[in-house]
Structures are given as C-alpha cells and as structure tokens.
Simulated assay, not measured.
Amino acid sequence: MENNLKNKILKLKKEKEALILAHYYQRPEIQDIADAVGDSYYLSKVAKDCDENIIVFCGVKFMAESAKILSPEKTVLLPTFDAGCPMADMADPNDVLALKKKHPNAKVVCYINSSTEVKAVSDVCCTSSNAVNIINNLDADEIIFLPDKNLGEYVQQQVKNKKIILWSGFCITHKKVSAEEIIKAKKLHPDIKVLVHPECEKPVRDLADFLGSTGQIIDFVNNSDNKKFLISTEEGVLHQIKLKNPDKEFYVPSGGMVCVNMKKTNLNSVYESLLNMEYAIEIDEDIRKKAYRALINMHELGGK
C-alpha cells in the first residue's frame, strides 16, 4: 500500500513538474520521496533557486511561507494546512514593533521559525546554522533576537561584543530534554558523544560535546570516528543519519523528542496536495515584500 502510494506521488510529481522538499524532521517515508531533504536554510535556498514552478513543502507553515516569500511567482503547497509552529506563534509583529521603539538603535534578527508578519518587521532572518555569522556581520551593536531565547542565549555566548535583547519564546520539542537525562546517558555510556541543538535550554547545552543545527549535527556524525551518539534534537533527523552511518549506535532522550506538527504530513496528504493543488500559500504582497528583504538579507549576510 505504501509503495503504491509512493509511486502514485512520484508519477503525479513528474506529470505536474513539481518539486518535493522535506525537512529532516519529517517522517522517514516523506523524506524518501523528496527531491531534497535538509534544514530550513538549505531548503529555503533550494526553493529559491529551483526551476520548478510547483513546490510541495513538507514541513511546517513558516517554511512554506518562506519559499513563497522568495518566489511569489511559484505555487507553494503545504500538504497539511494546520502544520504550524508553536514557537513561531510566540512572536507577534505588534509586540516586536513596541520593543523596537524601546530600543531604537537595535536591529531585529528573527529566527526563520517565525511568521511572515514577524519577518516583515525584522531587519534580517537567520537559521540556527547561520545566526552567529549574521549577527557578527550585522552593522549594529544592539540586537533584538526572536522568538527563541535559547538560540539567542547561544548566540550571545558566541558574540560577546554585542548586546542581545532576548524574546521569551522557545521550542516545545527541544524543551522536553533535561540535563538529568544527559548526565544519566553519559554515566551509562562513558564513550558517548552528546549532540545538542541550540534550541535546547542552557543546562542541556552546557553538557554538549557538540552544539549545532540539524544539518551540522548530521555532518558531525558523518565525519566522526566515534561509535555512540546521543542525539538531542527532533528524532526525525535519525533517518538520514542512520542511512549514512549503519555501523554507529544512536540514542535519544527518554520519552523521545517528536514535533507533532512535523509529523502531521503523511503520504496521503502529499498525494492529495499534488492531486488537488492544496493547500496553496497566499501572502499579502505588501507584507511579502517587507519579509522578502529580511530573507534576502539572510542569504547575503549568512556567509563567513
């Protein structure tokens, strides 16, 4: 049944000349049918540069919106219309504008995990992989960073010559892991490497052997001679890691780290999305243009 549905999707994709993008946190079977699998930054580049005019974005809403912001002439489909991001919902554009008034000399850097409306009132977007570079390259001594306070704290540790004004948002999935679990895992497996996403809270980050974005965590495992790893990020990432590292052992914090919104997308919803061209992302053009500037600034400032 699953293979039959996969074949129907691939046939339909070819007929419609569509491109399927999947985030690392998607279900394994969704990653397997995608033309590109990656983190937010990589997928935003693929969406911007691809020749296809139909993009099926298997992720959450802010990701599909980012693709539409960068390529308004393309049809961007989000297979599951209610696949949102609680962290993105923690930032409101009016509140951002109010904070800007309190700090008139500050530049606003918003994590890509934010709504189009928040991007529109920001100076530049960032991802967890390029946040440090962007803030280092930004011509400002004061930075309002939102919505993730944990990533903002991590950036402040790396960029000591600038003042980071933190928002109070957080990722509900990365909040699930505790320092006690990491300590317990290290005692049980003294030779284990602990890999942590910067969206985790500080006590967990402080115990990391490596701290980095989803893509950076995968690269670390691929290039490491170590054989045991505790992966402290959304466990969908394990699919790609295990494919490339069959001889290594992987552990996750007890209880698991699952983003329920990322897991809403399934093969049937992808098929229905392509078949019926649903659900197409629509953005007000004035807001899109403002948000576009922030995303383009991310691509320009994100290098070394």
Rank of each mutant, 00 (worst) to 15 (best):
E181Q: 15
C126T: 09
C85F: 04
I9N: 03
M298E: 12
D139K: 07
K107C: 12
I231T: 02
V258N: 13
L12R: 10
K11M: 13
A36N: 12
P246R: 06
K248C: 03
Q216S: 15
C50I: 05
S66L: 03
K187E: 13
H174G: 03
N222F: 13
N266L: 01
S114C: 11
M1I: 12
D191R: 08
K74F: 06
V237E: 09
S114L: 04
K8P: 07
K264C: 00
K263P: 04
K248H: 08
L188K: 15
N113T: 05
A120V: 09
A67W: 01
K227G: 09
E181Y: 07
L275T: 14
H299N: 13
Q157N: 13
E15I: 02
G236C: 01
T265S: 09
V109H: 07
Q216H: 10
V124P: 02
D225I: 15
P72F: 01
C126V: 06
K107L: 14
D206T: 06
L301C: 05
T80L: 12
K264R: 04
Y41S: 03
T75Y: 00
N266M: 09
D284H: 10
E153F: 12
L78W: 02
K160V: 14
D49L: 09
V60D: 08
K100S: 05
E278M: 12
M90K: 03
Q157P: 11
Y41L: 14
D286Q: 14
K248R: 04
S40N: 06
G38H: 01
P203T: 10
Y41N: 10
M298I: 08
G38C: 04
C259E: 02
N3F: 12
N105P: 06
N94K: 15
L151D: 07
